[in-house]
Design a protein around this nucleic acid. Structure first.
Length: 492
RNA sequence: GCCCCUGUCGUCCAGUGGCCUAGGACGCCGCCCUUUCACGGCGGUAACGCGGGUUCGAAUCCCGUCGGGGGUACCA
């Protein structure tokens, strides 16, 4: 039982979910699946000032949208709950108390200003700045003096005087000398437990075996390893120190870490823009991990089957929206016509091109139109632009002004007139017949340039110079609509 | 300042002493296909940060150097 892999993803519910966060979740998920382990989802909401219930809901919804299902966590439960830290405050208080009683942590009465001042002095001398262990060995007298001054202490962890080394799953052996890891605060003066305490506490209690997290937490790892050793002695958890793997950053434009403020970092933006979860995840998997054999297009199942942590790279990766889009386009092409129609329907409803419950006719029309755009789409958000001409009411149908000016010139009117005549007399209103007849008369007999004349027809019928294939579009629109749209221009 | 991580085409990834005159993908540029836009096909562009070693042989090992990033909190 004890060698079963347990990993966790533990975001704070602050603001929009971030793509870097999604990447971390994905790698943890894949690692769990690959090792037939457990994927724990924990919410780190101990910071009341920044966390919100709204973000919490978005977080859960996003994870579900992505299909990153958790084995234990909120709304799912599990043997180590609760999985929201805000519901575990008593646990942290208890652990803090034990650490203090057994001497692994001590009360520090220094004010932040005092600490800061001494830090500055250290810096000037070229020493590693950090807490100087001032309050490590206070006498009773000193304590009572501080109390008399009305000072409330923070709880600091007593770092052992030794080098801390671990074998990082993605970076290999890493080592920190003890003089570079000062005693750090576990509990604030006001009693709030800090990340430094709650995160390792929960990992220990939830029996996490592997910690895969962002590079930003790299420097806090030695402190946590020391804490785990203390946990072992005071009986918190099973006495296991997890293995650590530090994932590289996801960078934005320039050389900056993709920050929460960048719109390109917002998962919600990708969702709104019509990225498929499959596509986004596939792209994110490529940031820092490779399948091997030059394979870049794969499903999450395939990723999980092949996920070796040793193939994770340590270099920061730039998020490239173009490549992300290209992969998304591949995923769209891979969808079946029915599946794509389904997803397009949702998109069209969202932007109001279709009503909330589309009619049978509308659904059929959409299904018929799907093959026409299947290879043309990069994201679902492009659907309305390509297809709303099919769904719009005739009275609302508008032709792009600029396109009309370029293509629907005065000298093209005779061709439009001829087209109407042909279309009206066509015995069968089918793509091939439309093509053959219009081509025969307009191009062969009248000697017009196909490019010119068909572009004019395209603009008249679809409203744009760029559109899905013309004759197919005409066929699914129906004869009357096509005629009325062309005639509209003849009357002008 | 000190500590840590990191350095292959514009970008992401492959490459772990000879398969490398460095491979793939995205991008970009041509050409073909084509009534538009795409898809597809073909071709091209472009990189081992630098300097020393080690070795018959280095992108791969060692040393140095330079660059990028992060940490140095009663943030995470």
């Amino acid at each position: 039982m004890s060698n079963k892999v347990r990993v966790r993803f533990c975001p704070s519910p602050t603001g929009d979910p971030h793509v870097g966060m999604v990447r971390t979740a994905l790698f943890n998920w894949a690692f769990a699946k690959h090792n037939k382990g457990t994927f724990v989802f924990r919410i780190e909401d101990t910071d009341a000032a920044r966390d919100s219930e709204e973000s919490y809901k978005v977080l859960l919804d996003s994870m579900r949208w992505l299909g990153l299902n958790w084995d234990e966590g909120p709304e799912v439960g599990g043997p180590f709950g609760p999985y929201r830290q805000s519901e575990r405050m008593d646990i942290y208080k208890d652990v803090a108390k034990k650490l203090h009683e057994k001497g692994f942590a001590y009360h520090c009465y220094c004010t932040q200003d005092e600490v800061e001042e001494r830090r500055k002095a250290q810096k000037e001398k070229g020493q590693t700045p950090g807490y100087d262990a001032h309050c490590r060995e206070l006498t009773d007298k000193q304590v009572s003096d501080f109390k008399a001054l009305g000072r409330e202490p923070v709880l600091r962890f007593r770092m052992p005087s030794k080098t801390i080394t671990w074998n990082d799953l993605v970076r290999g052996e890493l080592s920190f000398e003890h003089e570079h890891i000062p005693d750090y605060v576990l509990v604030r003066a006001n009693g709030d437990p800090l990340y430094t305490l709650v995160n390792p506490t929960d990992d220990a209690l939830m029996e996490i075996t592997h910690v895969l997290r962002g590079e930003d937490l790299l420097s806090s790892t030695p402190r946590q390893i020391a804490l785990y050793e203390a946990f072992k002695q005071i009986g918190v958890g099973q006495g296991i120190t997890p293995e650590f793997g530090h994932l590289p950053y996801v960078m934005g434009e320039g050389n900056k870490k993709l920050s929460k403020r960048d719109p390109e970092s917002s998962l919600l933006m990708y969702r709104r823009e019509g990225f498929l979860p499959e596509g986004l995840l596939n792209y994110l998997a490529l940031l820092g991990w490779s399948f091997g054999d030059d394979i870049e297009f794969f499903s999450m199942k395939e990723m999980a089957d092949n996920f070796e942590i040793s193939r994770v790279s340590a270099n920061p990766a730039r998020f490239d929206i173009k490549k992300c889009t290209a992969i998304n386009a591949d995923w769209i092409r891979k969808l079946s016509v029915e599946e794509l129609a389904n997803r397009m329907e949702k998109q069209l409803i969202e932007v109001g091109v279709l009503p909330n419950s589309p009619s049978k006719e509308q659904k059929d029309l959409l299904l018929a139109a799907t093959p026409l755009v299947h290879e043309r789409l990069e994201t679902l958000s492009q659907v309305p632009g390509m297809l709303s001409f099919l769904f719009v009411e005739e009275k609302d149908f508008v032709v792009d002004h600029e396109d009309a000016e370029k293509s629907l010139t005065h000298d093209i009117l005779p061709a439009l007139e001829a087209s109407v005549k042909i279309i009206k007399e066509l015995p069968e209103f089918k793509t091939e017949k439309l093509h053959d007849e219009l081509n025969r008369v307009l191009v062969t007999e009248m000697g017009l340039k196909a490019r010119i004349v068909f572009t004019a027809l395209r603009v008249a019928v679809t409203g744009r110079r760029v559109s899905p294939p013309l004759f197919e579009s005409m066929e699914i629109m129906g004869r009357e609509k096509v005629i009325s749209r062309i005639e509209k221009h003849l009357k002008k």
